[in-house]
Every structure is written in structure tokens, then in C-alpha cells.
Write a protein that binds this DNA or RNA. Sequence first.
DNA 1: CGTAAAATTGACTGACTTCAAATTCGGTGG
DNA 2: CCACCGAATTTGAAGTCAGTCAATTTTACG
Lengths: 256, 256
Amino acid sequence: MLDSPCAALAPLLKKLEMWAPLGEPEQRAVLALPHTVRRLDPGQTIVWEGERPAHACALLWGYAFRQKVAGNGARQILSIHMPGDMVDLHNALLGAADHGVQALTRVEAAFIPVDAVRALAFAMPSVGMALWHETLVDGSIFREWMLNVGRRDARARIAHLLCEFAVRLEAAGLGERSRYELPMTQEQLADATGLTSVHVNRTLKGLERDGLIERTIRAISTANWHDLARAGDFQPGYLHLAHTSRPQLTRGFDGG
Amino acid sequence: MLDSPCAALAPLLKKLEMWAPLGEPEQRAVLALPHTVRRLDPGQTIVWEGERPAHACALLWGYAFRQKVAGNGARQILSIHMPGDMVDLHNALLGAADHGVQALTRVEAAFIPVDAVRALAFAMPSVGMALWHETLVDGSIFREWMLNVGRRDARARIAHLLCEFAVRLEAAGLGERSRYELPMTQEQLADATGLTSVHVNRTLKGLERDGLIERTIRAISTANWHDLARAGDFQPGYLHLAHTSRPQLTRGFDGG
DNA sequence: CGTAAAATTGACTGACTTCAAATTCGGTGG
DNA sequence: CCACCGAATTTGAAGTCAGTCAATTTTACG
């Protein structure tokens, strides 16, 4: 990765390079994307469901989440995001926001005009491919969450979410899977897992009672990672982190 | 759209042009993608979960679905696909299949080497963008399904699925929303909605009793579209069909 | 016709929800 | 440092939507 006098977008570049190594001009071009940095408080809206966003948003610091609201008023949290994530590329490229994005904690985010993103993707296909890859991995996580919400019981859903957060945090170099701060209320956990906050509370206590996790105020210790992952039916393949976890030998464009 | 002496991939081109108009060379290039056409029987696997697919698959005729299987043996159907859909571009580009794809009915599908797809996306960015768009819309549908499974009751889930199928069928020019053949067993409907087949059965009868649908063996009449859509909390925005449903005036790359 | 898969039905069960209240936490001002 | 307040967590009791189990009927199809 290049360093530059003003590399506010460094977290984004780091994330993109997880998907595919970029050449030096490509790296420069990513860092040179026009953008405005904004600070947001917890709960503040980054994108409203239904709006026509003109900017894509790269998270630089803090956490955010995507959500949709049903006609009955219930909310479903769709994904959690951490620094480096491109948090509304989906909405921006599609032209109409089919979901909202909100700050989970205090957040620092870079807003990049969609057209600049699109133009860069056209001009430098390998950057386009990296961005595309980013959206594909988001899609994979959506699929796993659909399985989680649709076909696992409460205990497994919560355990799964705890495992995913831990592994993604570690993969992004933002903490360790054995102990981390989980900046979500039990109500937010409920909305992410399709449960109620009351049941989340009971389920967390169950996991704690059984020694799978330890909890301080807002921090989680995965006291027994092995059993927690088993309880959560957690297999990290869907995160598509192979590039980083397995040292990849040579793999060229020779398939087919 | 171009016609060509051997335009097996015409349904794919038609679908891509729903997302963005393509120039004549681009159209030619899509139709010229190397591919093998295969016929499959209902239930046959197109991609196995866990495999490393070397081909992307364009549905030419018939229906298919994506699925994931949890450790407890339960299955979640993630999406339904119809002719023109690129049904495992996600898996192919990510390199490892995080979900499986199966034929729902008898199917005719074109298998295109991933590398040819990737090369075309690099060579002709507007084709790449159309393919990207296709995967983004898939993602949007995943999000809506997550909301459906996580936050709607059984009646709404089923009604929503029936509405989505109807609208997509109509948008693809494959039938009318008022009456169509639904080639899914109640067990498959259950796996798509996070319910059991028994409860799907009862819920369908409920919708029928209330005059929202009529059923013959495997066909659905949306007897009362308005109320069905309301019962299903169905708002088609997430399908991102604006190009086709609203006659779009001019919208260039002038956002921001 | 005959057979297997799919749909249907009934009785019972249970995981999770709902409602409501009590307790703890975290920050803020005196 | 401590009192205070709203938000978040925790707990209990009761209710329900959907699941489970187990037939029975209907359909598809050779």
C-alpha cells in the first residue's frame, strides 16, 4: 500500500487490496478519489431508505449497519460494517436506496461521488473488479444471514453473529477474536437476528452460563471459541477471506 | 438487441439490457461468449455448495434456485431464478461456492467459463457494469428476503413471495402477474420463507379462503392483487425495475 | 391401475413473544 | 463525590404463532 501526504481513504484501499492486489497507479487513483470526510454520532443516518444517493460512503472509523423497515414497523438489521467497508455502494450504483444505513457508534466516513467511483471503475477495470468483489462478499454475508435468520434457533443465531463479528474484526486488523468490544444493544442484536430483545437477553445468559462466552458491559470474551463456533454453526468460508488466511500460491487465469 | 444465426445467449443479453443499454459491439460480444448448453432435470445440481466453480451459468429456459444448508440439516432457499438470470456469477467470481444452485424445473442453461466473463468485463466496462448491476440486484433481493424471513409473519411471507414471483415473471416477459404457474412444492416454499411445509399449506389455504389468491394444482391466480400486495407488505422498489416500469426520460451521468 | 411424491388435516407441543415491572448502567450536574 | 435520570438490561408470568408428529387424501405419471 502506498502512503501519501493525505491518505484519508487508506482504510478503503486496504480493504480493496484484501480482494485483489492493485498496481501502483490504481492505488494512487483510489486514494485520489474526491471525497468529503464527515463525523457522525451513534444512530445518525448515513443513507435513508428510499433516497437517491449521490455518494458512496467509505467507513474510515467506527461501526455502521444497514437496515430495512417492514410495513408493520419492525426493523431488520442486514449487516454490520467496520472501517474500510464501502457501506452504500449497492444503493449508490443502483440509483435508489432499497435500504438505510446508520451509524452504530461514532463514525468517521468519507463520502465519494458515485460518478467518480463509476468513472474509476470504467477507467481502471482492476479497481472496478475489486469494488465489485466487495459488493459480492456483502452479498455472500447476506445469504449467510438469511440462513441464520431462516433456519437456525435463537442460540445458534446469536453465537453465529458473535463469531462473525470476531473473525471480521480480526481479519480487518481491528482486534482479536478472543475478546472484543461489541457496540450493539440487545435490541440491535435482536433486530439483526430476527428475535426480540428479551429473548436475546435470555440467550446471551444461556451462552454465558454454559461457558461459551464471558460478558462485561459491552465487551465479549469468546471464552470457548471452539464450542461457540460449533453452537453457532459458524464456518467462515462465506466471508471469502481465503486470500489472507491461506497463503495463496499461484493462481492465474487458467480455469475453464 | 441483435439477432444472430446462433443466439443461444439471447435471454442473457435481454436481461443485461434491462440494466443498461449496450452498444452494438457489446451486444455482439455478449452473444459471442464461449459456452456450452446443458439440459437439466428438476432437482439436479448446477453448482455444489463448497465447490470451486469454473463456469458462470446463464439460465436459458426453466427455473432454478439458490440454497444453503445449515449444520442441523435445514435448508434455506435464497432466491428463485428465471430465464436470462446469471445464476452463479457470485460463486464463480468469488472463486468458492458459498451456496448451491439447483434446477427447480427442467432447465436449459449455458455454462460460460468464468475467465471469459471476467475478460469481457475488463475489455468492455459497460458489459462489466451490466453484470455488476445484475449481481447488485440479486443482493437487493437477498436483503428483502432477509426482512421477509426475519420480520414478517407467515401470511405476509408467503404473500410477498407470490407477489415477487408474479412481478418478476411479468418484467421478464414470461407471463402475467394475474395468473401464473408456480413450479414450487410447498416444501420448497417453506424453505424459501423459513417455515414448515405444514404451515405453508395452512397459510396458502388462508390466503385462498380470504379471496386473495385462487389455486389450481400448481398455478396461482392473484385474484385480488391489491390486497395480496398489501398482505405481503410488497413494494417492488427493491427489484430495481424502474427502467422498464417507468418510461424513463433522460438520465445521464450527471449526478452528484 | 399402481405407486411414490405432494398436499391436506388434526391434535398436541414448544420456542419465542408479549406485557409489565424491577434493576443496573452511564453520564451529568450540583 | 454523589444524586439523579433516561436508556439498557434483566426477570417473571402468561400467551401464541408456528412446529412436530402422524395419519389420510390427492396428484402425477408410468
